[in-house]
């Protein structure tokens, strides 16, 4: 299945709120706007069919206008599944955030099931004063299951400056078990915070989590855990240190 969904948020000076200028779902990517009391526009991303399946090419384009604030949340864990012909599935999120805009991307965990082959890509282009919060929680297989193969890449830029570039490959048993890579832990959680107060984070860490300042401002929270609940709790702990 090939699908491209689009989402565009704009700040409305008349009401002081963010409005959704454009919202285009395409199966299996369904975008559901939610009512909120504040000035933020909240949208739920729902995978309406069993997706991503091997062979799927899914894309989501997000634009956040000057001064607008958009939060895109997941509602349930995503299961990356193998397709009938064993093809690769791909999900790409591309976000452009204009000056003083804010984009929060908070999907639920992705479970890499056995024999799945999945590529995840997130690119975020930030303008001056724009801010970003994006979370990724990867679960290596369902209970008692070896994970399939996953590659995940994240590229965050602010103007011409590279803020963060990271790629990971999961599914090589020896690498996953290495104390230098995933240390045999089943869940990897990361959360990137860029712009605003997050541009001046101080380092903080525990046994299996850390919050570290990025070289050009912003911070990265990282957690390795045995289960998704612990990963999310420790990510929240790390992010709390960002103030």
């Amino acid at each position: 299945m090939k699908a491209t969904a689009e989402l565009e948020a704009e700040f409305d000076p008349a009401t002081g709120r963010t409005v959704l200028r454009r919202l285009r779902s395409m199966a299996p990517l369904t975008l559901l706007p939610q009512r909120t009391a504040g000035d933020v526009a909240l949208v739920h991303l729902v995978n309406s069919a069993t997706a991503p399946l091997g062979g799927d090419e899914l894309a989501l384009h997000v634009r956040v206008g000057p001064g607008a604030h958009l939060r895109l949340s997941g509602v349930a864990a995503t299961l990356a599944l193998p397709g009938q012909r064993g093809g690769v599935s791909a999900m790409a999120v591309h976000a452009e955030v204009a000056a003083d805009g804010r984009f929060e991307h908070l999907p639920e965990p992705t479970v890499v099931t056995a024999r799945a082959r999945h590529h995840a890509l997130l690119t975020a282009e930030l303008d001056t004063g724009a801010s970003l919060r994006t979370r990724e929680v990867l679960v290596l297989g369902r209970d008692g299951e070896r994970p399939g193969d996953l590659t995940t890449a994240m590229h965050v830029t602010r103007g011409e400056t590279a803020v963060l570039r990271q790629e990971l490959t999961i599914g090589d048993a020896l690498l996953d078990a290495s104390p230098a890579y995933l240390a045999g832990r089943r869940v990897l959680g990361t959360e990137v915070l860029v712009g605003g107060d997050a541009d001046t984070v101080a380092p903080a860490s525990g046994q299996w989590w850390s919050l570290t300042p990025l070289p050009t401002g912003g911070g990265l929270a990282t957690v390795l855990a045995e289960d998704a609940v612990t990963a999310e709790r420790e990510l929240a702990e790390a992010v709390r240190h960002a103030g």
Partner: peptide, 13 residues
């Protein structure tokens, strides 16, 4: 841009 989450955690700790 290969990452290494556990090395990052070990280095910070």
């Amino acid at each position: 841009a290969p990452g290494a989450p556990a090395l990052d955690l070990l280095a910070e700790a």
